[in-house]
């Protein structure tokens, strides 16, 4: 059913720290690896071993330059599904293949009934949905729904593959609907933002902005005085040595 739930019990999502992300693409490759063989698999590739290689990825890592001149900075920006509260990708779906779960807010595609019309990709402003051409259906981030509830995995690993793989711990997973959760407190502390809220999709994921860089003032070095070898007078050289201790 492509009508949206009035409210969701939880709002599971990601918090991505743009201050510590180094743009290594580990999240993207971990995601591709896990989801290529999970409920969404295969994530088809076209010409995987030759020129023109392309394929389905749920996570795309961009790099941007933000700001001007001395104040500009390079920001690595992982882009994935934001599991919006009012996702038009779900409501435009003509078949009911797209849905938003009432229990945790995760936006999913039922690949068994998707007709591959791609209207959901048009409706998503964030480019979260990709068409799997050989499969003829849409694919998208599942928030690793087959990991986070997976009782056969150690509890510490029950997080999305991208969160687990991030070497700088720039990715956090949790319930953004609970103001007391770790992720909600992180967002409050660091001033986390939603992407393009003006579009009205009410994204759940948050991005933590880069911190302001430390400023190092260019001050001239203090005059260290003459070197011991430059002091000719033995008595003064001895005094200098004693006082330099």
């Amino acid at each position: 059913m492509t009508s949206l739930p009035e409210r969701t019990e939880r709002k599971l999502g990601l918090v991505i720290d743009l201050d510590t992300c180094v743009g290594c693409h580990a999240c993207a490759t971990a995601c591709k690896s896990w989801n290529g063989s999970g409920v969404s698999g295969p994530l088809s590739d076209i010409n995987p071993h030759s020129a023109g290689a392309e394929g389905v990825w749920f996570n795309r890592i961009h790099s941007y330059e933000a700001g001007e001149g001395e104040d500009s900075r390079t920001v690595h920006f992982p882009r994935s599904c934001l599991h919006c509260e009012t996702p038009a990708c779900v409501t435009v779906c003509p078949t009911g293949a797209s849905y938003k779960r009432a229990e945790d807010g995760i936006v999913l595609v039922n690949h068994d009934i998707c007709i591959g019309c791609q209207l959901c990709a048009w409706a998503c402003p964030y480019g979260a949905r990709e068409f799997d051409e050989p499969e003829g259906v849409m694919k998208k981030c599942t928030l690793c729904v087959d990991r986070i509830y997976n009782r056969s995995m150690p509890e510490a690993e029950r997080v999305p593959a991208c969160v687990s793989a991030c070497p700088t711990r720039a990715r956090h997973f949790g319930d953004l609907g609970d103001p007391g959760s770790d992720v909600s407190r992180l967002v409050a502390e660091r001033g986390g933002v939603a992407l393009a809220p003006e579009l009205g999709y009410a994204p759940v994921n948050r991005y933590l902005p880069p911190r302001d860089p430390k400023r190092f003032e260019a001050t001239p070095p203090k005059d260290p005085g003459p070197l011991p070898s430059q002091i000719r007078n033995p008595l003064l050289r001895w005094v200098d040595r004693i006082l330099s201790r």
Partner: peptide
């Protein structure tokens, strides 16, 4: 706005 980086000024793809 799509990257949440508005506060830093213009954003250019690198």
């Amino acid at each position: 706005s799509l990257t949440g980086l508005s506060r830093f000024g213009t954003v250019r793809p690198l």
